[in-house]
Amino acid sequence: MSELEAPTTDEAARPAGFVADVGREALDLVAAARSLWSVLTRTLHWTLRGPAEPGAAVQACYEIGNQSVFFLSVTMGFIGMILVFQSALQALRVVPDLTMLGATFLELLVRDLGASIGAMMLATRVGAGIAAEIGSMVVTEQVDALRMCGVDPVNYLIVPRFKASLIMTGVLIIWAGAVSFGAGAATAYFLFDVPVNTFMNTSLLDRGDVLIGLAKCVAYGAAIPVVSGWCGLGTLGGSEGVGWATTRAVVNSSLAVIVLNFLISSAGFLLFPT
């Protein structure tokens, strides 16, 4: 489980031997969980109670939106085309009727794929960006300088990005979902002659789907900056350390999205019997 290691452990400095390895991994995992928990609780504490840095969250909103809207539109557009294409082919094997194609696609998009694939992309783009920025500040001792001035780096560096991510993840995912649905509708129209009016069918969408989708937006929006900020703060060493931290941020925040997806989907499945 090397992915879940505390960023503060050094892979090079381990005694040999399988038992020692396993023991060390377990201790690392506990230490990692504790430091992640500490970052999470401090983020929540400062978000609710702390003095806000004026304008910092707005600036972070702008950055998150600006750096990822194009990327997210492209990837989600392609996802829409792929899924509609694939499911139309699958459906045609069974019944030559594509009237419910749009309705099924829309339900899947709202309930899961829009938020989850979109958040995987945000974990890649935004998560890596956060870790790279904070990691660079760690190796140049700017984070130590902050602490010397009585500033909690979590409050100063993570909280503005956390607030911005909570807002922007929702905004970006709704936008990207619309792009995805539009690309899907175009695919259905041009390749399978499904009229756009037929495709735009909301009959399968219910309250549960929307609630699950929104819950996912909030959960992913909260998880990505916390996990990648934690990876950034744990940076060790010079330029190689920043590279490592960025890598860890991508992997760990993607993993967080997948695990949260499973938990929320399961909870939603049990809570909203259709």
């Binding site: 140049t140 130590d144 300088a145 602490r147 010397m148 909690d152």
Partner: peptide, 16 residues
């Protein structure tokens, strides 16, 4: 944080 207010510190890499 309270203790550190008694200190000033110059870092090796300046940390500006």
């Amino acid at each position: 944080q309270r203790v550190r207010r008694r200190f000033g510190m110059l870092f090796q890499n300046n940390a500006l």
